[in-house]
Nucleic acid binder design. Structure first.
Length: 317
RNA sequence: CGCGGGGUAGAGCAGUUUGGUAGCUCGCCAGGCUCAUAACCUGAAGGUCGGAGGUUCAAAUCCUCCUCCCGCAA
């Protein structure tokens, strides 16, 4: 497989690990597909995806079609003459015509133990659901959403303190390793692939900004999972009402990156802020250990409260 | 030129509108009280107010330019 042409499709930093591993191991990556650069960030500049940037550095040609509906795009893909395509959190649906092009088909690196958490946000879904483990599934792609035959699977523990960032990082590395293992003897692995179980199927939804808002009426466990699942990106957030005009802004928007469960005040109203940035929830309280207010740097909850002692006793919503 | 917030002691902030001795809550250091402590008391150190220029008798504060950090939106 070492010298056979491979096409890589991916967009996120999760998928970058696999591409980087392929390049390091000197596989013959003849083309990279990634999501089209789009305006983003503070100055609204057009930005390439991390995978795109990396491929540029490596001198690999990059393609960013909006979809694969036109013959042009399909012909272009065919022209690369790849024997195999490797896909990892790419972002576009791959039609059957395209799947048929490489002689060895498409291989996908998916960050869950399939068939659990098929779809867009498998890692967050696992944390949100309170799963105690998740993992990587390497599979052959078919036209369905993450429904292909399984080549290999490895699991990783999720601890209560695990956040999305570190988990995604860990899984990205595991995925890269597993792809290298697969390529070590591709034919053997392909011949051993097996269908996904029919039981235990679940789908993960795409996340929205709304979903990231903390609901303080929820249980401490659920809120902590929520915080972990969205940390550090895009981060759970809440708003603190300042009622009067004692501050210039009428309220403060606060991102919460990390928290710990504490059994401090019982029976306090949900959302009530106590000393040290401890906030009451349904059946306990969370100590917000790492936060960030609008326009400010990330800091500990203690520090945040230091210059805003008037916040104790206010309600987070 | 997408919209907006910010840079003041090691940390988090006030002070800028109306120019006139550099402040608060912590931390740090020393001492004291305690069986003891993250508690309490006393004392001390620590800042060319992001940078450059300008106005002024006088600039953290007013004017111009630069730079760095951050939130929103997409």
């Amino acid at each position: 497989m070492k010298n056979r042409p491979i096409v890589f499709l991916g967009t996120s930093s999760f998928s970058l690990k696999t591409l980087a591993a392929l390049c390091k191991a000197r596989f013959n990556v003849v083309g990279v597909y990634s999501r089209a650069p789009k305006p983003a960030g503070r100055s609204y500049k057009v930005q390439k995806s991390v995978v795109h940037e990396y491929a540029d550095e490596m001198g690999i040609p990059v393609y960013c079609p909006k979809n694969f509906k036109s013959d042009e795009e399909i012909d272009q893909f065919r022209a690369l003459g790849a024997d195999l395509a490797i896909l990892s959190s790419y972002g576009l649906i791959i039609p059957q015509v395209l799947l048929n092009i490489p002689s060895h088909g498409f291989i996908n690196v998916h960050a869950s133990l399939l068939p659990r958490w098929r779809g867009a946000a498998p890692i967050r879904s696992a944390i949100l659901a309170g799963d105690d483990k998740t993992g990587i599934t390497v599979m052959r792609m078919d036209a369905g959403v993450d429904t292909g035959e399984i080549i290999s699977m490895k699991s990783v523990d999720i601890f209560p303190e695990t956040c999305h960032g570190e988990l995604a990082n860990k899984l990205g590395e595991l995925g890269a390793e597993m792809i290298l293992e697969t390529l070590d003897d591709l034919d053997l692995h392909l011949s051993r692939s097996r269908q996904q179980p029919l039981l235990g199927i679940s789908y993960s939804k795409k996340i929205s900004k709304d979903l990231c808002r903390i609901c303080w009426n929820d249980s401490v466990k659920n809120i902590l999972r929520h915080i972990k699942a969205f940390s550090p990106e895009p981060a759970s957030w809440t708003e603190i009402d300042l009622q009067s005009n004692e501050e210039k802004r009428s309220n403060i928007r606060l991102k919460v990156y990390d928290a710990k469960i504490v059994n401090f005040p019982a029976n306090a109203p949900c959302g009530l802020i106590h000393e040290n940035m401890i906030v009451s929830c349904q059946n306990g309280a969370l100590w917000l250990t790492e936060v960030q207010a609008d326009g400010k740097n990330r800091m500990s909850g203690d520090d945040f409260l230091r210059g805003r002692r008037n916040l104790v006793g206010k309600i987070a919503r």
